[in-house]
């Protein structure tokens, strides 16, 4: 990623709606792969997407998408970007097939190519026979798939997905997240996806950008958010297994506390490798060692640590320019 041009480059971007400062000197680069855009309602996510599409002019600062300045080259940007809006956008009396063909043509594809592309993307998103039925009769999951299909119809280099899992039941949500992942990883299309459910972004994004009141709170790789916490999760089976193991480890001078059905073991102390100690203790006590893994945090834990007064955290200064 370091050698290629970023997909999105934003410098000092400010959008002042008068009573509301939607974006406040936002500076940020977004690269290939899947990037999650997180923030509460009103954090500036939608405004940022609209500016990136060249629809809303910024008050100051500039934004580039795929090397095109969004204000001066809006049409070029929109020709290579796909957009899935958060709200409903499907006419009920048209079939998904006709609709996607039409919108592919609206992105500049000739009719024949548009037909082929529509059939292909509808297959990829998993709309089979129902593609020939009017979309008014679709379930929410099918509607979201149709919306995704139109965003992909013209083979964009970047797709902006605004809350693609909104209103979906768990099974449909899993399917949609799987699709988002495939777009970013297998289709080779850069993805910017917004969601207010952090667990979802954790599963699909390579990078996470956090906006708060129009400012950048943090931008980094998802795995950096989820750094190992320096503890080991250990789960053992047997009579009073957790208690006996905890006692044994405490005797060996290792910090340990119960965490649900497992033990959280401190890895930071000096001395012999804690993993060896755990293994030996389990063996000595005759317990079945069923799990021993590094304890990762969840995105939610990261946000719980962010300052609540809206000040940008120190991380904001270290926005990776990769």
């Amino acid at each position: 990623m370091s050698s290629v041009q970023p997909v999105v480059r934003v410098e000092g971007l400010t959008k002042d709606y008068g009573p509301v400062l939607a974006l406040d000197s936002l500076t940020l680069d977004i690269g290939e792969g899947t990037t999650g855009l997180v923030g509460a309602n009103g954090a500036g996510k939608s405004t940022l997407l609209k500016i990136l599409l060249g629809l809303v002019p910024a008050t100051s600062g500039r934004a580039e998408v795929l090397g095109h300045d969004v204000e001066e080259e809006g049409p070029q940007v929109r020709a290579t970007v796909g957009y899935l809006p958060e709200h409903d956008c499907l006419p009920p009396d048209v079939s998904a097939s006709d609709f996607v063909v039409h919108l592919a043509m609206m992105s500049g594809l000739p009719r024949l190519a548009a037909r082929e592309r529509a059939a292909e993307v509808l297959r990829h998103v998993g709309l089979a026979e129902e593609r020939y039925r009017p979309m008014g009769g679709y379930s929410t999951g099918m509607k979201q798939k149709a919306k995704l299909a139109q965003a992909l119809a013209h083979d964009p280099r970047l797709v902006l997905l605004d809350e693609p899992t909104n209103g979906l039941d768990p099974a449909a949500r899993d399917e949609m997240l799987g699709l988002v992942r495939r777009i970013g990883h297998d289709f080779g299309i850069a993805v910017i996806v917004t969601s207010h459910l952090l667990g979802e972004l954790e599963r699909v994004s390579d990078h996470v950008v956090v906006l708060d009141a129009g400012r950048l709170l943090r931008a980094s790789r998802t795995d950096e958010f989820l750094d190992a916490t320096g503890t080991l999760l250990v789960e053992v089976l047997g009579e009073d297994a957790q208690g006996r193991m905890a006692t044994a480890l405490a005797t060996a001078g290792i910090g340990v506390r119960e965490r649900g059905s497992a033990l959280s073991v401190d890895l930071t102390g000096s001395g012999p490798d804690v993993r060896d100690v755990v293994r030996d203790a389990a063996s000595d006590l005759g317990l079945g060692l069923v799990r021993m893994q590094a304890d990762h945090r969840h995105l939610e834990d990261v946000f719980a640590e962010q300052p609540s007064d809206g000040r940008p955290a120190d991380h904001a200064e270290e926005v990776p320019r990769d």
């Binding site: 956008c89 009920p92 919108l103 609206m106 500049g108």
Partner: peptide, 18 residues
């Protein structure tokens, strides 16, 4: 009215035509 009512206008505006 149709494009405005069903929100389809957002999809047109996200495409090259101004």
């Amino acid at each position: 009215s149709r494009d405005l009512r069903h929100g389809t206008i957002a999809l047109y505006l996200a495409r090259p035509l101004g």
